[in-house]
Design a protein around this nucleic acid. Structure first.
Ligand SMILES: [Mn+2]
Ligand SMILES: [Mn+2]
Ligand SMILES: [Zn+2]
Ligand SMILES: [Zn+2]
Lengths: 141, 141
DNA sequence: TCTTGACTTGGACTGTGTCCATCGTAGGAT
DNA sequence: ATCCTACGATGGACACAGTCCAAGTCAAGA
């Protein structure tokens, strides 16, 4: 069972069937589902769960820092349960696969103070785009 | 007059009043307007211009490589006429200001081959988030 | 000036996300 | 075990961003 549920219980969350199902779906690495994808999967386990509940729960998990919102295109936001260590993303421009990636060093050192235009920079979101192994050179699929 | 229009004419584009005003609006540095913002400004010069034409024209400019789409949040895409040199973006988390920024070196060197999970990486989109000079420490506004 | 196909237009339509009044229930109190 | 009630769930209306289409308009070459 996911320790996400354990952390949530400790935070005083009321445990409902809906929240259990959503937490169960948001478990594992390289998970970057849209709200509708979460809803579809949740509905297989709990047919009458509503879209509003999925949006509410995801929003609360984001506020608690238990999941991160990831925007890799102008489409639907994706929800990422891997918040233990911050990371960046590799996106396949052909099939859309998204994978977690850990660049070397602190991404902020790339941006020296004299190029920051007076900003106080806190974070860097990086999306690397290219072709995944399945879609890369030589693929005829 | 913008040299964007000159490049477009050379590419055989039919010059219409709508395209002229859109090209005129998409001129300068640190310009990152949404489609609706472009439409609002265009309508001040050409009251009957339609939203569909703004979307059509922006889409064509993107295909031609004359403007870049920038996604800094889950909201509307932004259109960036600064495609001469690739660059990244500083976003103020308080007021939303977006500015162009040029980190040192090639952003892809941060991601060594053994961390690329077999991807063939082509580009890196980077969004630095923080507070702009107006919103930074000590601002009471 | 005429012709024609590329461009523009308004509106219908889709996808994504928010809001709200009402209903249901988890979990503490008894 | 049962009751209470505040918190959570629900469905539907709504808002925003973007796409699509049939019909009308016009830029530019003949
Ligand atoms: Mn991730
Ligand atoms: Mn820019
Ligand atoms: Zn792929
Ligand atoms: Zn600011």
């Amino acid at each position: 069972m996911s320790d996400l549920l354990e952390r949530l219980r400790r935070r005083g969350w009321r445990m409902t069937a809906q929240r259990r199902v959503i937490a169960q779906i948001l478990d594992g690495d390289h998970v970057h589902l849209t709200a509708d994808e979460v809803h579809t999967r949740a509905a297989r386990l709990l047919p009458e769960i509503s879209r509003a509940t999925v949006y509410n729960t995801l929003g609360e998990l984001v506020v608690l820092g238990e999941v991160a919102e990831v925007t890799v295109d102008g489409r639907a936001k994706r929800y990422d349960p891997n918040t233990r260590r911050p990371h960046h993303h590799l996106v396949c421009t052909r099939c859309g696969t998204i994978r977690d990636v850990h660049p070397t060093g602190d991404p902020l050192t790339r941006l020296p103070a004299d190029r920051r235009l007076g900003f106080t920079v806190a974070t860097a979101d990086i999306v690397y785009r290219g072709l995944c192994p399945d879609c890369g050179v030589g693929s005829t699929a």
